[in-house]
Write a protein that binds this DNA or RNA. Structure first.
Lengths: 198, 198
DNA sequence: CCTACCGATCGGTAGG
DNA sequence: CCTACCGATCGGTAGG
């Protein structure tokens, strides 16, 4: 067995597991369920993965890595207004999710089943990511682009709530592209529902 | 044993179970965990409740009933602008959640573990509730209060995402009252982050 | 990737 | 509300 085919089989196990974790939840999804979906015996899974939790770990941290990379790309850009920076951050987040909606849903809903110290590491990454979006919002408040009257915590939590639920209702077969959806989401949060006075 | 004390004990079981379900998730929370928290044996739980799922059922449908009652009160009001109606709907939703943040978190995260036909009933209630908020948004678009350029589904899903994550970050000991938080949330979604042109 | 299997734990019942 | 217990299922291992 070559290394390449072994990696590919492991990735297949993880991909099918992601679907199962999303459907039933991590705890309710059994290794026997997973094996059946793959057409093998449960014991055979362990020649590809070390444990059930390893699968969850890979899913959560691979997503986290992609989110971080996307954010860093936006942060490195020069001469952006706060609105532009926030918009591009949101678009990047949506694009990362759209690349794998199943893994995104697992990332969002099942990460709490990670054991320590992985759970702590995960939560630290998340709080760091959120804080960096919070900085974008604060920059906009400081330079007058955004209202200073809005509670910063409320603003950033509303932003993340909106982003994180997207995997639960976004239809990947729809005509709308991730970047467009991200732009619409950004517009809604920045400009609001209300008709602009003309 | 009087009926009153029996009901009270059952309610206590359900309340402690809600905390456990929120902490560990419905599937990972065992009846032995629950019994231990209550200081009794696992088998003794069944003199108060019929099954583990009965607890989840009560938690989910009691919350659903409260949400519906709150919405109906807003719908029955006359002479409200779309913004006002939406704001009051949001405030009502936040107030219902704030009355029991633990049950709200279970309602949001664990309802999918309901078995049929209860899961179907639950999802029908939820889609009905969401659609009635969607009608408020559409009314605002129709009368010119809200932009027609925003995708209705995106708007209502953003609204619900924001609302439903609140139990995960709202600090009940904070000075901010639920009605005020609801108003802030409504302002953010209706008016957006951007500074109004003056 | 399989057969055979393990100890642990699950929700729940019988009977008091 | 307890003791005693049940059948089912869990994640995982040994050995091939």
């Amino acid at each position: 067995m070559t290394e390449v085919s072994s990696i590919s089989r492991k990735e297949q196990v993880i991909r099918v597991a992601a679907e199962l974790f999303r459907e039933k939840g991590y705890v309710a999804a059994s290794m026997r369920d997973l094996a059946q979906k793959l057409g093998i015996e449960a014991a055979s899974l362990y020649s590809h993965i070390k444990s059930k939790e390893e699968i969850l770990h890979v899913l959560c941290f691979d997503m986290a890595k992609d989110f971080m990379a996307s954010l860093e790309k936006v942060e490195s850009k020069q001469n952006l207004t706060a609105s532009e920076r926030l918009q591009q951050g949101i678009i990047g987040h949506v694009e990362v999710m759209a690349k794998d909606l199943t893994a995104s849903a697992v990332f969002m809903n099942e990460h709490r089943h990670l054991s320590q110290p992985f759970l702590r590491d995960f939560l630290l990454l998340r709080i760091n990511y959120i804080n960096r979006f919070k900085l974008m919002i604060e920059a906009g408040m400081a330079n007058g682009e955004f209202k200073k009257t809005i509670d910063k915590k409320l603003a950033v939590m509303t932003l993340f709530s909106s982003l994180n639920w997207m995997p639960l209702w976004y239809d990947p077969t729809s005509a709308i592209e991730p970047a467009v959806l991200g732009k619409q989401l950004s517009d809604m949060l920045v400009n609001g529902l209300k008709q602009n006075p003309t």
